[in-house]
Design a protein around this nucleic acid. Structure first.
Lengths: 226, 226
DNA sequence: TCGGAATGTCGCAACCGTGTCGCAGACACC
DNA sequence: GGTGTCTGCGACACGGTTGCGACATTCCGA
């Protein structure tokens, strides 16, 4: 018996899914808007959230991100049959799984159980992170260094957020290109290198000996003071 | 950099997926049958398995169950566009996710990362391997010996990663040439010997009595302080 | 013990990967 | 419409890396 929060605006889908999940032994609370969902998420602390992508007002991605700011509850995204961009976007926004509507109850039940079996996720959804004198506030989308704010362009900020999301880990140019620039194919373009260089020029004191963004020759870049 | 085992019988799919995942920073080993896959799963202990459902001989469900008998490595199932019964069956057989072919590389990459993000609460423990005083961190792509970092070139690092992936097992020059240098044909070049020598000069205290990389005359090299 | 094959070792030059810069188009704002 | 900034893109330079050949050394069977 797991406490599940279902956020879905379509009345008939919400009601039938809610009943169905109940029959599979879950304890379901449901909301019809993103705001209501966030409220319930705070109040009831469910063990898992089933979240529709298409919501009036605040959409599913946004709800997902906001849930991730404060917590690590597993999220299963629910969307209409669409293209794969949504899958990537959803998973990157912090979702744990992704199910396409229309969906049979037993399928979503199987998904829910699979996600719950994996256990609780890590704490990658922190609102702010500190690396030495560099503070990244993901909620406010600001970066301060030694107390004063660093003015970053949108691309630079996205790059920094992406890099800092997995500190100490090497990210390939291909990965960065897709997550930051949303390109799918890397020719022999120097796009990523250029982006890194521009970001370095703003946050690194000595670009010859970078502290935050390390080049890992032949593999990519790594964020993190050691 | 995650070690991934890809089990897929269709040559073109296997090769293209393998290359694509490589570009995303994964370290891919592949098998074309269930038996071979199980063998590699035991030998290489991958961090994640991408498993095709339709295999000649032993099918994906069976492979999945057998992997589950001995280990808890995350499994992502890969199947042709079919009905939802497969989803339920697959997830109940112990798969952690389920992807429908044809699939874009970045989609499966996102899925893989989503699964890995949950699966290993202690990421550093999984991503790094220790052999005596030698520590290999596959996520950060760093190698430390006796506490201090060893500066390796890309080729040296790839070679070390490849060797250390199957400790105690002899790898032929041909195998190493393919996996590290991505050449398909070995003339009578001394490429691999040279690479090994350069690597030894950095991690072996006494190159006359190597501890980590043993020469197996007539066959190749073997990694491991045994 | 001898000889051939397999492997270790060294140095060099070409090449590749990366840092860096400047330019021009796109875009927003005034 | 003008102005400024951001961003993609190519050009160039530099240093480390790597492939390769040559020679030394070790190993193993005859």
């Amino acid at each position: 018996m797991s406490r599940i929060l279902l956020i879905e605006d379509d009345d008939s889908v919400r009601i039938s899914l809610s009943k169905a999940l109940g029959r599979y032994g879950h304890d379901v609370v449901s909301a019809s808007t993103g705001e209501e969902g966030l409220q319930l998420c705070r109040d009831r602390s469910p063990e898992l959230v089933v979240l529709d992508l298409m919501l009036p007002g605040m959409d599913g991605f946004e709800v997902c991100r906001r849930i991730r700011v404060t917590g690590t509850v597993p999220i299963v995204m629910l969307t209409a049959r669409g293209d794969d961009i949504d899958v990537v976007g959803g998973l990157e926004a912090g979702a744990d799984d992704y199910v396409v509507k229309p969906v049979e109850p037993r399928v979503i039940d199987a998904r829910i159980r699979a996600v719950l079996r994996r256990g609780t996720p890590d704490q990658s959804g922190q609102a702010s992170a500190t690396f030495g004198d560099l503070v990244i506030d993901r909620a406010a989308m600001t970066v301060t260094q030694a107390g004063s704010e660093v003015a970053l362009t949108p691309t630079e900020l996205r790059l920094l957020l992406e890099l800092s999301r997995s500190p100490g880990q090497v990210l390939s140019r291909q990965q960065l290109l897709e997550s930051v620039w949303e390109h799918s194919y890397l020719g022999d373009s120097r796009l990523v290198d250029n982006g890194v260089q521009r970001l370095r020029s703003k946050i690194e004191a000595d670009s010859a000996a970078p502290v935050f963004i390390q080049t890992v020759r032949g593999f990519g870049y790594r964020f993190g003071p050691v």
